[in-house]
Amino acid sequence: MNRHQLVALLDRYVKGETTNEENQLVERWLEENGNRNQVWQSLDQSDKDQWLSSVLSDINSTIHPAEVKVVPLPPTKRWLWQRIAAAAAVVLVVFTLYLQWPYWQSLLHPVQLTVLHAPVNQKQVITLADGSRVWINAGSELRYPKTFNGKIREVYLSGEAYFDIHHDPAKPFIIHTGEVRTTVLGTAFNIKEDENKHTVQVTVTRGKVSVANGRKLLGILIPNQQISFNTLKEEASQATVNAAAVIAWQQSDLYFEDVSFGEAIERLQQHFQVKISFRNEKLKDCRFTGTSAHGEELDKVLRVMCAFNKATYEVKPDGSIVIDGPGCSN
């Protein structure tokens, strides 16, 4: 359905010309979408009361126009009004500074960030202070505070990571990837920065995520939606994708990228809880790249790995495994 048809649908809805099904559709859509960061919610009770009574007096002056009285103020009093206005302006500035205090404070006392760098051949998983989990892909880096003290939770990413954010409506979670800001309350999603292609991609697997470049909102994503932002052209495009495929790197437990046979076997030992040894130590230095799908059997993984490294393996009566072969030329 294109934009033109959507606009026509909304027009018909407003005029009351839609069918029952269309009504339900629009109403369900309205139910599920909207503005999370409402100004209204953040007002306190007296502000709300004041707002409501000012709207009511507007309404009353519209429906009873005759009762509106215009009272001109004498010139001397205008001075007083100006003074009050000036005083109010000062109060407003002070109040605004007070509201933004956490921001100024963060400038004055920068938060100490811990840097977690995933080596080129290994992923890292970390649980942050708030219980959020982050899977950092090989070669990527996450900077995060030991504790989240302010009104927001903020971390910095370069490279690729999958986030499963602990829900906390009072403390939004913001991920900075260069200038791109991804803001969430509690969801799961993937961020991939590609410095060569100058792109940042955000893909959502659960919940809702808003993505902004500086102050400009790029879009609000729901599951299986992806935003690609070109940091050079400052252009964003949105698409529906299979999010499961995007985060496959995080789910495949065994992900080998340019690792030595020795390192790979060490990880297989941990993963499958078996003892594996080399008869020919030279094999340990063979390097290769490969992924093994989540939960795949050890047999299958070993067969592929050994074939690749011109080796064979043998299962001993005690269950341990011995690998043998001539070794690699590299």
């Binding site: 359905m1 649908l9 559709l25 859509w29 400009k216 609000i220």
Partner: peptide
């Protein structure tokens, strides 16, 4: 932009 995003999700449903 905010509303365009909302309307896009209507297109999906």
């Amino acid at each position: 932009q905010e509303y365009a995003a909302m309307v896009n999700s209507l297109a999906v449903s």
